[in-house]
């Protein structure tokens, strides 16, 4: 699929390489041959499939590097950003959802419900602009783009700047990276937050009505015990499902957030590659995104099976 979609894009990558000024006919043929574009579409497809299975997507037309190299450099940025976004949104989402469910029809409840309703409708790119306007332009607390200030030189180990800077013992670099990451992660996590608040609240409310919760109350268990041992445990499968969904949405969110904050990650890479008609990069980007999504779905399913034994035997969820 990722092969066929991208081949249909009008525009010739060869023209993109040599520019509009033109080159000799022999040179054009030579480039075509190097890129494998002189063969028929069907031949190209088989070569693509064979290479894809071996994890080989060819060289990027723009950077002239193997696509895997580009991806390897860029993905830690997206990974780091997504993890931070997921971390704050799930913690805040859980807390807010539990608070709303335990104090139903209170100020907190209405607040949480309206927050998640608005969060669902919020166009991420506008939210990002507002956050930039407020925290970066007006208050000047945070930088608007990039991953770290230029004066820091962090040795490459994992590619995750937060970890790399800690490993090399540069606390200033760590805080600089954290500061750069704060706004994008905040924006990226907002969508997941809305989802997690909503699911947590509604599943807690449902479970509170169950008989075994009444029994637990009648037994005189402490509130915190009921909350964590009984309600939370039973709400976990639903919350995990929501987390999996939120993870899936992160990729879409990352495209927006990274474009907005000039974050050198996969999302911006995909958009840029589409604009430059960089076939190998776009194909690889599509392929990797699908792999990531399949992987996330797999992990969520397995986790749900662990926390909910009832589902362990069922063949498909």
């Amino acid at each position: 699929m990722s092969f066929s979609i991208i081949r249909l894009i009008p525009g010739d990558p060869v023209t993109n390489i040599i520019g509009e000024r033109g080159a000799s006919e022999e040179r054009v043929q030579e480039i075509r041959k190097n890129l494998g574009l002189d063969k028929s579409v069907i031949e190209q497809y088989f070569i693509f499939t064979k290479n894809a299975i071996q994890g080989e997507f060819g060289d990027s037309i723009v950077t002239k590097q193997p696509v895997w190299n580009d991806f390897k450099i860029l993905w830690p940025a997206t990974f780091e950003l997504s993890m931070l976004a997921m971390l704050w949104s799930s913690l805040a989402g859980l807390a807010l959802g539990v608070l709303a469910a335990s104090k139903r029809n209170s100020f907190w409840d209405y607040g949480a419900v309206s927050l998640s309703t608005i969060g669902f409708a919020m166009p991420l790119f506008w939210w990002g602009l507002i956050v930039i306007f407020f925290f970066a332009v007006t208050l000047g607390w945070f930088p608007v783009s990039g991953r770290i200030s230029v004066e820091f030189d962090v040795p490459y180990r994992t590619g995750l700047y937060l970890i790399d800077s800690l490993l090399s013992g540069q606390m200033n670099a760590f805080f600089s990276a954290l500061k750069h990451m704060a706004l994008p992660a905040f924006v990226l996590g907002t969508v997941s937050l809305a989802l997690i608040v909503r699911v947590t609240r509604s599943s807690f409310i449902d479970i509170q009505k169950e008989d075994y919760i009444r029994t637990a109350r009648a037994k005189g268990l402490r509130k915190s015990q009921i909350l964590f041992k009984h309600i939370f445990k039973n709400a976990l499968p639903q919350i995990l499902t929501a987390l999996g969904l939120a993870f899936g949405q992160l990729l879409t969110g990352a495209i927006m957030t990274e474009t907005l904050f000039s974050w050198p990650g996969i999302g911006r890479w995909i958009v840029k590659s589409i604009e430059a008609r960089d076939y190998p990069s776009v194909q690889a980007g599509l392929f990797y995104s699908m792999l990531i999504i399949v992987f996330i779905n797999f992990v969520t399913d397995e986790l749900i099976k662990i926390v909910n034994p009832k589902l362990r035997d069922s063949v498909n969820l």
Partner: peptide, 20 residues
């Protein structure tokens, strides 16, 4: 299922990229 394999925005992005 095939259409849904990708997040909706990403897919829309590719379709527009194809068709112009």
């Amino acid at each position: 299922n095939g259409i849904q394999a990708l997040p909706s925005l990403l897919l829309a992005l590719f379709v527009v990229a194809i068709l112009g």
